[in-house]
Simulated scan of single mutants.
Amino acid sequence: MLTLVLGGTRSGKSALAEQLAAQTAADLGAVVTYVATAVVDPHDQDHVRRVAAHQARRPPSWATAECAQADDLVDHLRGLDGVVLVDSLGSWLARHPDFEVDPTPLLSVLRARTRPTLLVSEEVGLAVHPPTALGRRYVDALGVLNQRVAAIADRALLVVAGRTLELGPPSQRPPPSQRRPSGPPDPHTLGETGR
């Protein structure tokens, strides 16, 4: 089972994914491997503190696999057994030059996994529009990556202010002939169309 847990900064997404991983592992009698995708710069004290807080929450029985290189994520997912928790796709994407990544190998290994896998990712599309070209490239690339992973996920959750919303299955956009016209709704037909 593949679960995608999305959320903004300090939303509680990682804590939720950790709870789900622990419960799943307990139910199955399995171990949890936490796959860390970020590289910690020891000069960035804020990031050091955030990583330490994540580490302190994890049970000592969990194994940790670190991605020394961006390509390590696919290898870890291919080789690990038991419950796997990846935190996070945003950090993984940020390690690729110009945020350009072919998601095909990641999606393939996720589809092939037979054990529970939880992926944490940042939902950055709800934030302020980035003022720089680099920021916009990151937001666009992560938004596309999140959509691709969500399309194959068995379950997708959105965490906002510590509250969790279960997201429905991927929607399919109707063909142009069946789309409603854009623009303001016609007040005379509101009752008929359900808008």
Score class of each variant (00 low, 15 high):
Thr164Leu: 10
Gly79Phe: 00
Gly194Cys: 14
Asp87Lys: 00
Ser108Gly: 08
His54Ser: 00
Glu192Ile: 13
Asp98Phe: 06
Leu77Gly: 06
Pro175Arg: 08
Val149Gln: 05
Leu6Glu: 06
Leu6Pro: 01
Gly8Pro: 12
Ala94Pro: 03
Ala15Gln: 14
Leu2Asp: 05
Leu118Gly: 13
Ala156Val: 15
Ala127Tyr: 07
Asp87Val: 01
Glu66Gln: 14
Ala63Pro: 00
Ala68Met: 13
Leu145Gly: 12
Asp87Tyr: 03
Leu20Thr: 00
Pro60Ser: 15
His47Lys: 02
Arg173Asn: 09
Arg179Asp: 02
Val48Lys: 07
Thr132Glu: 13
Leu16Arg: 14
Asp27Leu: 11
Phe99Gly: 06
Val51Glu: 07
Ser88Met: 07
Leu119Asp: 04
Gly191Ala: 14
Gly7Cys: 13
Ala68Asn: 11
Pro59Met: 11
Gly7Tyr: 14
Asp98Ser: 11
Val32Glu: 05
Arg78Gly: 05
Glu192Thr: 15
Ala70His: 13
Leu20His: 01
Arg49Pro: 02
Leu145Glu: 06
Arg115Thr: 15
Gln19Glu: 15
Leu4Lys: 06
Arg180Trp: 12
Thr189Trp: 08
Leu28Trp: 08
Thr164Gly: 08
Leu110Trp: 11
His188Gly: 14
Ser182Leu: 12
Ala30Gly: 00
Arg58Glu: 00
Arg95Glu: 07
Pro59Arg: 10
Gly183Leu: 02
Ala36Arg: 00
Val51Trp: 14
Trp62Asp: 05
Pro184His: 02
Trp92Arg: 00
Gln45Tyr: 03
Val144Gly: 04
Pro184Lys: 01
Leu107Val: 09
Pro116Met: 11
Leu20Trp: 06
Ala26Gly: 10
Val124Gly: 15
Val139Tyr: 06
Ala161Ser: 09
Leu110Val: 10
Phe99Tyr: 15
Gly29Ser: 01
His96Ile: 03
His76Phe: 02
His76Gly: 02
Thr9Arg: 09
Leu4Thr: 09
Leu145Asp: 10
Asp154His: 08
Pro184Gly: 04
His54Trp: 02
Pro60Gln: 15
His47Leu: 10
Val159Tyr: 14
Gly8Cys: 12
Ala112Ser: 10
Leu134Gln: 11
Asp140Gly: 05
Ser11Arg: 08
Asp87Leu: 04
Gln69Pro: 04
Ala133Arg: 15
Glu123Asp: 09
Pro176Gln: 01
Ala36Trp: 09
Leu157Tyr: 05
Leu118Phe: 15
Arg115Leu: 10
Pro176Asp: 12
Pro59Ile: 13
Gly191Gln: 11
Ser177Gly: 10
Arg195Lys: 03
Pro184Ser: 04
Ser11Thr: 08
Gln55Phe: 03
Asp98Ile: 10
Leu89Trp: 13
Arg137Asn: 13
Gln178Met: 07
Leu119Gln: 06
Asp46Lys: 12
Arg115Asn: 13
Leu85Thr: 01
Leu89Glu: 10
Gln178Asp: 09
Thr193Ile: 09
Glu66Val: 07
Ala65His: 11
Arg49Asn: 02
Leu119Asn: 09
Arg10Thr: 01
Val160Tyr: 04
Gly79Asp: 12
Glu122Tyr: 09
Asp27Trp: 02
Ala26Ser: 12
Arg49His: 06
Asp75Phe: 10
Ala156Cys: 15
Gln55Asn: 12
Ala30Cys: 05
Pro181Val: 12
Gly168Trp: 00
Gln147Ile: 12
Glu123Thr: 04
Ser91His: 14
Gly8Thr: 09
Val83Gln: 01
Tyr34Met: 00
Leu85Val: 03
Asp98Trp: 02
Ser11Val: 07
Thr164Val: 14
His47Val: 13
Arg57His: 03
